[in-house]
Nucleic acid binder design. Structure first.
Length: 873
DNA sequence: CTCATCACG
DNA sequence: ACGTACGTGATGAGA
């Protein structure tokens, strides 16, 4: 017997949306800002309704056009809240999804989804087919018959109630025909159907059990006593009209019939791209699981001996080093893939590292090498006393320059962005989390070789792409050389004074324990001081302090809130101190200990392809957020020391971002002030306040505006920052932009440019795409506009320091200096300097930084020397 | 695994 | 009426 499936698309879609859109939750989005929560949930539901067994299926949708119900009754569905914009955007995507599955999505003006389903269901039932209807709308229960089952979705797909005629009687004590009359009597608030006021489900069922039909009830209306009888007599017309409205139409004039809705083949490739575009990667993985067994059409060649390896080392190759862990300082090398575009090889770490020929090959600049993540390879080789030269292409860096959002992605996703699909997800090969392990050798060797193959295959295309975008210099002259600089910095590491570390650990530990006792005492009961939830209950319930409920999970207890409560209760200052100290203890003392290597150093990893602006980031440990703003925190810096008898030298740019802005926007007054070495915040304050002398508050306000401008300021946030009314804040901004009119022009121009081109760029042609600018959601679009302002400034500053690092590194190498660059913190460099080079370094380091690029303003640097990091002030 | 919090430029 | 500054990483709590 033929079996057909009919799906109430609208109802399911709403369920899908609201299942994942509860108030306060952030809706799921793709990386470019498209909302995907409804698509995501819809896919999950669809996969359960439409399986490989399904042969005939149609998904019905409503249209925006009025139906005859609207015409018959102008109040029909009146007062419904409009569909949220975030959901509306996803409707075309869901339609596309259904189509890619080979399934008909159908709607027709003048009909509702119910009517289309009803018509097809009854047609099928008459032909003896069996029918499954999926919806979350009870109205459809009137369609149930011996052939037709209605599956009502409750919560998501977790609970489904299957209604057959028997089930209907069991649940409502009514037949399917009576379901119409039930609704006619009850009415339906959500569709604005009146029914008979005062008659709810209970009364309606009672009436129907006695009289069977609405018509019969009305015929016997005079027999019904009391208030109920009165109501029925008074609202009989309303009941009749309601019945018309809730009756599903079974004779729609539609283009499909039950024999023309056969499911077609799934468009697998397109569906994968659909998922990828929306960042719905779980579904991609799911689809590719079975494909995994299907071998690629090429075989990898394992080079089993040193001589087999050395035989191929007479050519340019792509090389891929596969590590067991993202932290390559301590990772194991699982193998190396090599490819020349024709053959794809793989070797074990043992064979590779014991080959002198391989060592020679790596160092030989004559052979070009193409890699993925040069810095990782370089650091690994340094730990193994090896080196690599002649690398002319790095897939990771190239992809990152083409689109900075790609840097965060894994190998598979990067290459599939360039439509290269012959690659598996790492998770599918190795498993993930604690389950990560090596599978059979053939499987993972193939995987490693496939990466080398991909690098070789994509190299020319990506280089051409970079050339077209005028970014090849950025790769060749900045990012690739920088990889080498960073690799040496990471490998060199930062020395830790273990005595100082344990001294501070002890001190903090004692104080934290003491504070904890005092806090518990003041609170009057035991609780976990580190739990914001429990702390909120103590403060705002037990102690009844004035509060603002802020976060979606409960009370906010962050430092702003606590500061406002200062003085209201002695517990507050204790908590503030506890917070500060436990931050220092767990993040900087314990965190540091955990990252300490046997050489008593920490070896951070600079992520070179991660940020969307071009900055670096640092992890394991993060050395770019070591405390400095409070004296307490700053003490942590005493833990970091140079080599024996050496010194630290720190040099930083002063106001590099404002200078970049002044130069890019050609702001005359700013350029003049900078070139006259004036204090820029004081200068700005004087101009805004029209005074020759300004106080520190006024300078602070001017500084806040200067900063705010860089971030794409709003009056509201500025007012919060400098504690004035939003109105006053707006006046500051207006005055500021009048004072520096070029900034205003720049802000307008850059946003226009971004909207036209979809990206903004830095002085070195680093790009950031801003898809949010196209969003119809206000907050998204505003974010895009601020990004358009900020990214070129932050990114250009990053470019400049990168260039300075390369210049300095080359100088140190060429002149055979012992001093070494150790750290980079966005606008500053820290070097380990040997005494005899100190005077020269104090001269050369700031100079190289100042001369890294030539702007319309001079760059200024300051420079300090000290015995610990703390002493650099 | 997500959230709230807080450290940096 | 809306929602409220750019870029990061690490931690403990709690689901």
């Amino acid at each position: 017997m033929k079996k057909i499936t009919l799906i109430d698309g609208n109802s399911i879609l709403f369920r899908a949306y609201y299942a994942t859109a509860y108030p306060g939750a952030k809706l799921m989005q793709s990386s470019n800002g498209t909302y995907t929560n409804a698509v995501f949930a819809f896919v999950g539901m669809f996969e359960k309704m439409v399986t490989s067994e399904t042969t005939d299926v149609l998904v019905a949708f409503d249209t925006k056009e009025p139906t005859k119900r609207h015409i018959a009754y102008e109040g029909y569905k009146a007062g419904r809240t409009k569909m949220p914009e975030e959901l509306g955007q996803q409707i075309p995507l869901v339609n596309q999804y259904i189509d890619l599955n080979g399934v008909v999505a159908y709607s027709k003006a003048g009909y509702e989804a119910d009517d289309i389903i009803g018509t097809l269901a009854k047609q099928a039932s008459a032909k003896g087919y069996s029918v499954d209807i999926y919806s979350s709308d009870k109205d459809l229960l009137q369609l149930v018959d011996e052939q037709i089952t209605v599956h009502l979705l409750k919560k998501g797909m977790r609970e489904v109630h299957d209604f057959t005629p028997e089930k209907l009687i069991e649940t409502y004590e009514l037949t399917h025909n009576q379901m119409i009359d039930l609704k006619a009597l009850m009415g339906d608030a959500s569709d604005n159907i009146p029914g008979i006021p005062g008659v709810g489900e209970k009364t309606a069922i009672k009436l129907l059990k006695e009289y069977e039909t609405l018509e019969n009830i009305l015929e016997h209306q005079d027999d019904i006593k009391g208030k109920l009888g009165e109501r029925i007599r008074e609202h009989r017309d309303s009941a009749i009209m309601s019945k018309e409205l809730v009756t599903i139409q079974l004779d729609c004039d539609i283009e499909y019939d039950v024999d023309s809705i056969a499911k077609k083949d799934i468009k697998t490739e397109d569906l994968i791209h659909f998922y990828q575009d929306l960042d719905l990667h779980v579904f991609v993985k799911k689809m590719e699981m079975p494909v995994k067994q299907e071998e690629s059409k090429w075989n990898h060649i394992e080079l089993k001996s040193v001589s087999e390896l050395e035989d191929i080392l007479n050519q340019d190759l792509s090389l891929h080093f596969e590590f067991s862990d993202y932290n390559y300082h301590k990772a194991e090398l699982w193998g190396i893939g090599l490819s020349n575009g024709n053959n794809n090889y793989v070797i074990s770490a043992d064979v590779a590292l014991s080959s002198i020929g391989f060592d020679m090959y790596l160092k030989d600049e004559k052979y070009q090498k193409y890699v993925y993540d040069l810095k990782a390879i370089k650091v690994f080789l340094l730990w193994n006393k090896l080196d690599i030269k002649g690398v002319s292409f790095d897939l990771l860096l190239a992809a990152y320059l083409i689109n900075s959002h790609l840097g965060k992605e894994e190998f598979k996703r990067i290459v599939s962005n360039f439509y290269y699909e012959d690659i598996q997800y790492d998770d599918n090969i190795y498993g993930k989390g604690s389950k990560k392990a090596l599978p059979e050798k053939d499987i993972y060797f193939h995987h490693i070789a496939s990466k080398a193959k991909a690098i070789y295959a994509l190299k020319d295309e990506l280089i051409k792409n970079l050339k077209d975008d005028e970014q090849l210099d950025l790769l060749k002259n900045i990012e690739l050389p920088l990889s080498e600089v960073l690799a040496e910095m990471e490998f060199e590491g930062l020395r830790v004074d273990k005595e100082e570390l344990s001294k501070q650990k002890e001190g903090l530990n004692t104080r934290i324990n003491q504070l904890e006792k005092e806090i518990i005492h003041l609170a009057g009961r035991e609780f976990n001081v580190s739990s914001p939830k429990q702390l909120g209950e103590i403060l705002f319930e037990d102690l009844d302090l004035p509060n603002g409920k802020k976060t979606k999970t409960g009370y906010s207890t962050n430092v702003d809130v606590l500061n406002k409560l200062q003085g209201k209760h002695p517990i507050i200052e204790k908590i503030l101190e506890y917070r500060q100290l436990s931050k220092l203890y767990s993040t900087y003392i314990i965190g540091l200990e955990q990252n300490l290597f046997e050489d008593d150093k920490v070896h951070t990893i600079y992520m070179q392809a991660l940020t969307t602006t071009g900055r670096l980031s640092s992890l394991d440990p993060n050395l770019q957020n070591i405390p400095i703003r409070t004296e307490e925190g700053r003490q942590i810096r005493k833990i970091f020391i140079p080599k024996e008898n050496h010194l630290f030298l720190g040099a930083d740019y002063s106001q590099i971002e404002l200078r970049v802005l002044a130069s890019m926007a050609n702001v005359k007054k700013l350029i003049e002030a900078f070139n006259n070495h004036e204090d820029i915040h004081t200068k700005t304050a004087k101009e805004i306040f029209h005074q020759d002398e300004v106080d520190s508050e006024q300078r602070r306000a001017a500084k806040a505006v200067n900063f705010g401008i860089i971030y794409g300021i709003g009056a509201w946030s500025l007012s919060e920052d400098i504690h004035v009314s939003p109105k006053e804040a707006q006046r500051f901004i207006d005055d500021y932009l009048n004072l520096y009119p070029e900034i205003k022009t720049y802000m307008e121009d850059i946003v226009t440019y971004a909207k036209e081109n979809d990206y903004v760029k830095t002085i070195m042609n680093r790009r950031r795409y801003i898809p949010e600018l196209k969003s119809s959601v206000y907050t998204q679009r505003s974010f895009g506009e601020r990004t358009a302002l900020n990214a070129p400034i932050q990114g250009s500053a990053a470019d400049i320091l990168k260039k300075a690092m390369i210049d300095l590194y080359r100088y140190l190498k060429k002149e055979n200096k012992k001093s070494k660059i150790l750290l980079q913190v966005h606008d500053e460099l820290i070097l380990d300097v040997v005494q005899e080079e100190l005077e020269e370094m104090k001269e050369i380091v700031p100079k190289m930084m100042r001369k890294a690029v030539s702007l319309k303003v001079e760059l200024e640097t300051s420079c300090d020397v000290g015995k610990t990091w703390y002493d650099l002030k």
